[in-house]
Computed example of a mutant assay.
Amino acid sequence: MTTAPNWLSDEEQRTWRAYLHATTLLEDHLDRQLQRDAGMPHIYYGLLVQLSQAPRHRMRMTELAKSAKITRSRLSHAIARLEKNGWVRREDCPSDKRGQLATLTEAGLGVLERAAPGHVTAVRQAMFDRLTPQQVNQLGEIMRVMAQGLQPADAKADLPWLR
């Protein structure tokens, strides 16, 4: 015998739909800003940021896909586009003949440095300028609780904002 679903209350439904709508609008806003100002979608910007923060500006492709929460196929396509722009290059992994590394180039670092000010302005205007300091703290706490519950245990140590 199956049990009936625990349906969302009216308030939970309103909150869920507001969350979905706001996150969709925010992602679209950031994507349009980065396309306009830097010629890249938000996902590419995120990949460049991750590479810029990695030791020696490079990561194994499998780890990059895992941390970006995208499939290896989608990552491979994105890296191919970033390579075409001269922002990233692929290298064979010296310790594993089957593995590949994605490495941020000087040109990639330059485009990231030029794109970052406009991106942070867009984030600030779309999100933080609309919230009180108390709301920012509350939102941060809520998002950390959600992320901690959803993030695989083996990945939590790599994410300092979850602590």
Rank of each mutant, 00 (worst) to 15 (best):
residue 160 P to A: 10
residue 27 E to V: 06
residue 109 L to G: 13
residue 115 A to V: 01
residue 128 F to K: 14
residue 35 Q to N: 10
residue 70 I to L: 05
residue 109 L to Y: 03
residue 130 R to Y: 00
residue 11 E to N: 00
residue 4 A to V: 09
residue 10 D to P: 01
residue 34 L to W: 03
residue 48 L to E: 03
residue 148 Q to E: 09
residue 50 Q to T: 01
residue 125 Q to F: 06
residue 63 E to M: 08
residue 84 K to A: 04
residue 85 N to I: 02
residue 142 I to S: 10
residue 101 L to Y: 02
residue 72 R to V: 00
residue 60 R to F: 12
residue 1 M to L: 07
residue 127 M to E: 12
residue 10 D to K: 13
residue 148 Q to T: 07
residue 55 P to E: 02
residue 96 D to S: 00
residue 107 A to K: 07
residue 100 Q to A: 06
residue 147 A to F: 04
residue 92 D to A: 15
residue 95 S to M: 11
residue 83 E to V: 01
residue 136 V to K: 15
residue 146 M to E: 10
residue 129 D to W: 05
residue 157 A to K: 01
residue 93 C to T: 07
residue 23 T to E: 11
residue 30 L to A: 07
residue 128 F to I: 04
residue 99 G to K: 08
residue 160 P to T: 00
residue 124 R to M: 15
residue 139 L to D: 01
residue 110 G to F: 01
residue 65 A to E: 00
residue 89 R to L: 09
residue 139 L to K: 12
residue 48 L to N: 13
residue 65 A to K: 12
residue 134 Q to N: 15
residue 116 A to M: 11
residue 51 L to C: 13
residue 119 H to R: 07
residue 68 A to M: 02
residue 142 I to H: 15
residue 45 Y to P: 14
residue 29 H to G: 06
residue 146 M to A: 14
residue 134 Q to K: 15
residue 133 P to L: 02
residue 61 M to Q: 03
residue 122 A to P: 00
residue 95 S to K: 10
residue 3 T to G: 06
residue 117 P to M: 12
residue 161 W to A: 11
residue 25 L to A: 09
residue 160 P to Q: 01
residue 93 C to I: 13
residue 50 Q to A: 11
residue 110 G to P: 03
residue 23 T to G: 12
residue 100 Q to P: 04
residue 35 Q to I: 13
residue 144 R to N: 04
residue 130 R to K: 13
residue 129 D to P: 10
residue 90 R to K: 05
residue 81 R to K: 15
residue 128 F to A: 08
residue 114 R to L: 11
residue 107 A to S: 08
residue 145 V to C: 15
residue 13 Q to N: 09
residue 155 A to H: 01
residue 124 R to P: 02
residue 53 Q to N: 14
residue 113 E to L: 12
residue 64 L to W: 05
residue 49 V to W: 03
residue 60 R to Y: 00
residue 156 K to Q: 14
residue 35 Q to T: 10
residue 127 M to T: 14
residue 4 A to N: 13
